[in-house]
Design a binder for these strands. Structure first.
Lengths: 167, 167
DNA sequence: GGGAAATGGTTATGATAAATAACTAATAAT
DNA sequence: ATTATTAGTTATTTATCATAACCATTTCCC
């Protein structure tokens, strides 16, 4: 990095023709990697994830938890499996996620009388309240993204990603 | 899901006006979630990741490993830290990743005489060969993505994601 | 009606990626 | 020469995703 650059700075300044430049900081060639969608996706997702945690820090919801709250808020009475398939979560991974929402008093399970294997999900009053606040905080993140991409870019990105889900 | 639909099918067929439709399969309302870039990113990234593993199965490289091979192939003599900052990997997480590449004979570390704390990285002959084959296999995935998004869409996506990394 | 098969939810477990802190050896700074 | 940085390693923690096995319930079908 710049360590070695600093070390060799005098050499370069006096005698080195600025040809090789000794890997000066950002001079790393990513080659075909720059065009890999998967690579770009990973880095972008990490960045947005960091933004999410920052934006929702005071509430402390994970992305998955927020998504579940949104879905059961708009579709009261869905079963766990319904939510899982809607969100692309494994049923096995959904159990602890949901239990966390129950433990914090945001959601409740209720056995469906018509099929006593199934649990239907509802938000508590607290859950509705927290959801509203979380969505407001999340707006900040989305605004940052819009500022970064422009309104059109943001819409394009959402659409392209949506298409990609059907890969 | 369709389970409950099937259960109530006779009822609906005889007397129920097709109004409520009992959460028919894809009728889950994601609400604002559909517009969340973070949500779309997560799902798209998972999909592309699955495509990656499928495409490179016969070689068995992880995305991170491939990215490292590419970078040290195009920039021989980089130190570990150089590669880390170029790829956005923590130095601590890079160590086992690199050791795996060494253990499979794809890359070598070499102490830099000018600074014996640093290791410079090189590909072995095998590493170069595997890299070529891996890139060829990876082409398939990229082609699938291009088929899915169109050439223009793919370029747009790459650019938008690149911008997002600077969020 | 009653046994086999399928379904909803849970548990346990493993694999992977990422973050943090503490440590060593070597170099740089003063 | 002492001190402070820096490169790399180790250990640990956390979170996400995947798989398989299991129980209770319901459906299928004979």
């Amino acid at each position: 990095m710049s360590a070695r650059d600093a070390r060799n700075a005098h050499v370069r300044a006096m005698r080195t023709p600025p040809v090789v430049e000794r890997e000066s900081s950002a001079a790393v060639d990513l080659g075909p990697l720059s065009g890999f969608i998967g690579y770009r996706l990973r880095r972008a997702q990490l960045q947005v994830l960091a933004g999410f945690e920052q934006a929702l820090r005071e509430i402390g919801l994970s992305p998955g938890q927020l998504s579940v709250l949104v879905v059961i808020s708009r579709n009261p009475g869905l079963t766990q499996s319904d939510v899982c398939t809607a969100l692309g979560i494994q049923r096995a991974n959904f159990t602890p996620l949901l239990h966390a929402l129950e433990a914090t008093g945001l959601a409740t399970r209720q056995v469906l009388p018509a099929d006593r294997r199934s649990n239907t999900l509802q938000l508590t009053a607290l859950g509705r309240d927290v959801l509203v606040r979380a969505l407001a905080l999340h707006e900040r993140l989305e605004r940052r993204i819009t500022d970064c991409l422009g309104g059109g870019g943001r819409a394009q990105l959402a659409e392209l990603l949506r298409k990609l889900e059907a890969l």
